[in-house]
Nucleic acid binder design. Structure first.
Lengths: 185, 185
DNA sequence: CTTCAACCGGAATCACGATTCCGATTCTAT
DNA sequence: ATAGAATCGGAATCGTGATTCCGGTTGAAG
């Protein structure tokens, strides 16, 4: 039988970790997370063997939400806007929830199994939206995934710094989107 | 009288620091810099009171080079391309020489006197090139500095990760530039 | 060729967080 | 109510890298 307090604490830890990681990114301290969860660090470590593991859990949950959103956009919205909407969604997420960006992209480094599967799913989702948008003539046909990912990464990272206001970010994205649509020059 | 060996060592330290910081960014270790300079850490610290100070020295030197480049472009090249050339120059610099990006931009944080003067000069240089480009009709007139800085920051950060090949970065910038030129949508 | 202040090298010290350990506390089952 | 396994809390421990210290060296001046 699983102890009820263990369940409660795990939930608290997860919630506190999400808050703190979103606010401070990877540099957040374990103490802070434990304190915010009203729990000792020992408890925190019993639930998540390492800071990295905790981080992964949070990030993967968030990626799942994004994947849902992608699916929704693919069916609901029209292909003309779905792609840009999802792009914006990711950037907005990066702005509010720090430390998602690197995990979201991350080329090399040490990727675990589950993590890499989410990663692949994410790439598929983006590729799908891109293809639809291109078929619908909403995005120029000469852009491929690598460029899109690089641009997405840059936009996310800039947003993550928190140095730019929402309107400025909005205008920046608008410029970027114009570039993705344009055919001539 | 300043000892000749002291002068020699200072130069070595500076050179080694530049190499190491460019390769590894802020996370470079002082030991490594000292070793690379063929000097003890003690010597390193006599010349630069802190890692931060050393970092500042390197970054400011690099910013000066960029400022020279900006001046050259403003006089030599035509306004049509000067702006984009400088933008690319900064991004290329970020790719090769890591850990310049944050210092180059950096909104809040603790800025020292000299540092902030360079920072202001940099902003002026970019603003000047942007204005010229807009007057020449090379850049849409409805974009302002904030957006440009945000885009520059994003591009620099993405380049800095080293996850994207030169061709991909090139294509990404091309898309961005198209967005900056476009008038319609 | 002395002298000695400035300069060196690098071991020792500090600082800061992550992670471990273990006695004290609960839960759950009987 | 009671046992005892699972779970707690948080002090102590580790690891990593920046910074300090100080006995030994070395260049410059007389």
């Amino acid at each position: 039988m699983i102890r009820s307090d263990a369940v409660r604490n795990r939930m608290r830890v997860l919630q506190a970790a999400e808050e703190v990681l979103d606010e401070q990114g990877l540099s957040a301290r374990m103490d802070e997370i434990a304190r915010r969860a009203g729990v000792g660090v020992g408890t925190l470590y019993r639930h998540f063997a390492t800071k990295e593991a905790l981080y992964q859990a949070i990030v993967m949950a968030r990626i799942d939400l994004l994947l849902d959103e992608a699916a929704r956009l693919r069916s609901t919205g029209d292909p003309q806007t779905a792609f840009f909407a999802f792009f914006s969604k990711i950037v907005a997420d990066a702005k509010r929830k720090k430390a998602l960006t690197d995990a979201l992209h991350s080329a090399g480094t040490d990727i675990k199994a589950e993590q890499s599967s989410r990663h692949a799913a994410m790439l598929d989702a983006i590729a799908g939206l891109l293809r639809n948008a291109q078929n619908a003539g909403a995005v120029r046909s000469d852009v491929a995934m690598p460029e899109v990912l690089a641009l997405l990464r840059g936009a996310s990272m800039a947003a993550e710094t928190g140095d730019y206001s929402a309107p400025v970010l909005q205008r920046s994205l608008a410029i970027l989107y114009d570039g993705l649509r344009v055919v001539s020059a």
